[in-house]
């Protein structure tokens, strides 16, 4: 029996789709059978981030409406043996699907897959309700900015109200240089404010843009973001992995300052 994980954030543009693509691919690399479901109906994106946009025949709405079987709509990612994508519909809108239908779909996918990742649309309206309907747990993505953290707090409240038992936080696009200068909230700051358990810190990494350009998730590669995403995958599977040390380039001055601070 699989597990349904919704990747959500409230605010748009904080990295839900990128995180879904990388975590899904990472879990597949770790020999899990994974399906990524793009629930953002009308604003299809996960397919291009995954580089599978040319292979879409049927979509989520076709499955829900019974125009095809689930198996027909699933796109197999040829790069990995266990990875599938259920793309969203581009020409419909969120009212084409109801939370009950999503719940039923989740139950069916659970029979077949180890992990079902739901890429949630931004906002807290019907698209969000559809995406979380069948979820067992949630990954809340935020960046260390006031707007994103505020929206994440709202989302966490709504997840609790909808009885999603487990919610974990991903702090995305962290810039350690700015944190050190005191110009960006640290992951500790964000965790203190939101008061949910942290499952990953993803540094701001140019390689993410390159990987999105190419349609190839960078999880597991020798980049900081690639390592961070792979660690998140292992933590999802229950392993205890220490957080990456992003502070390797600490200068002499900040070392002295830290020493003074401790006293």
């Amino acid at each position: 029996m699989g597990e349904v994980i919704v990747v959500t954030s409230g605010k748009g543009g904080v990295g839900k789709t990128t995180s879904t693509a990388n975590i899904g691919t990472g879990l597949a690399k770790l020999d899990k059978k994974v399906v990524l479901v793009d629930t953002d109906i009308g604003l299809r994106n996960l397919d291009v981030v995954m580089g599978l946009e040319n292979r879409i025949v049927y979509n989520l709405v076709d499955v829900i409406e019974g125009n095809c079987r689930i198996k027909q709509a699933l796109i197999k990612d040829k790069r990995y043996p266990n990875l599938y994508l259920l793309p969203s519909a581009q020409t419909r809108d969120k009212t084409a699907v109801s939370p009950e239908q999503m719940k039923k779909l989740s139950e069916e996918l659970k029979e077949e897959f180890d992990y079902i990742l739901m890429d949630c649309p931004a906002g807290i309206e019907q698209g969000f309700k559809n995406a979380i309907a069948g979820a067992d747990r949630a990954l809340v993505v935020t960046t260390p900015e006031v707007s994103a953290v505020r929206d994440a707090d709202r989302i966490i409240g709504l997840l609790e109200a909808n009885e999603i038992k487990q919610s974990h936080l991903i702090v995305n696009r962290l810039r350690t240089d700015m944190v050190k200068r005191g110009d960006m909230m640290s992951s500790e700051d964000v965790v203190e404010i939101l008061a949910i358990e942290l499952i990953g810190i993803v540094p701001d990494d140019e390689n993410i843009v390159v990987s999105t350009n190419q349609g190839e998730p960078l999880v597991g590669s020798d980049t900081l973001a690639g390592q961070a995403y792979m660690n998140i995958c292992r933590r999802i599977m229950g392993e205890e992995i220490p957080f990456l040390d992003l502070n390797t380039k600490q200068g002499l001055f900040s070392k002295i300052a830290n020493l003074l601070k401790k006293n």
């Binding site: 006031v146 005191g182 110009d183 909230m185 404010i193």
Partner: peptide
């Protein structure tokens, strides 16, 4: 620092 300002405003 601006990060402290952000944190206080958010709280």
């Amino acid at each position: 620092t601006s990060s402290n300002v952000a944190k206080d405003r958010l709280k």
